[in-house]
Amino acid sequence: MVLTLRSINEDPARASSHALETELAQAAAFVRKHSIASIYHAGSGHPGGAMSSADILACLYGAELNLWPDSIEDPNRDRFVLSKGHAAPALYAVGARYGFCDAKSALRLRKLNSPFQGHPHVLDLPWVETSTGSLGQGVSVAVGMAMGLKLQGLSARVYTLLGDGELQEGEVWEAAMCAAHHGLDNLCIIIDYNKLQSDNRNSEIMRLEPLAAKWRAFDFGIAEIDGHDIPEILKTFRRASVTQGRPSVIIAHTIKGKGVKYMENIPTWHGSVKFTRQQAEDALQSLGATRSEIKELLDV
């Protein structure tokens, strides 16, 4: 059984933050390995951003979100919106880890008649909450959700993960202004700040810095953290959840391609890529997969 905050709550004897952190690290490794495998089988997909966001996603689904496979229609569930929809393989993998979908089915990424489309689609997979894939829109949808929950007196929270390149979309700043104006303290924006985008470094394409100052000027509660440090991610989520009167943003410094040595910090691995068998094997090996695990993931 996968250890989650709920299982800890249900069984206090297992309550150990160390055990949870260990589980979340394993979940993040699972997300990375499954993302590589599904992108390999698809013959296309974006591995870099899936690797950089794996720890954040594991912490959300494994600990922070009040969301379970049997509560995806509960009006008071927490919502997560993957605004950087191209990290879909990581979302599917974390969903598989926590029982929202079947892990083996999720390997049919980008295939004809598979619900695991290249970008998440809510009519295919209700638990992804909304359809994304056009940068800037997911954060607006999350703002609308946060407003709707408040209007209806529900205490659920809304989380959304944005890419750093995504911040070049003007809509993000429309959404930021709106969230602050309406005091959406039930909204938490997380930025997967891996410094790279499709073609090159952010700083070359369209610079984002000073990034924290931008969000501060928009009147957000801000945290800047290491997006691969699980205890720090968990602690920051807790702090964001008690922020009152304004929305939160977590600027999570990450490494694009994190965990796959040959991929780390190389922009080429952002865009949609086609893995050779050797590249997929090397990536999985780099992520600590055993021989039998590699075979199981790649020979389905």
């Binding site: 009006p75 919502r79 919106v81 909450e129 909304t130 800037g136 829109q137 607006s140 949808v141 999350a142 703002v143 609308g144 959700m145 946060a146 407003m147 709707g148 929950l149 209007l151 209806q152 529900l154 809304v158 809509e171 429309e174 959404a175 709106c178």
Partner: peptide, 12 residues
């Protein structure tokens, strides 16, 4: 932002 936020409001 307004148009996409409508999607979020409808989702609730």
């Amino acid at each position: 932002n307004m148009m996409a936020a409508a999607g979020g409001l409808a989702a609730t």
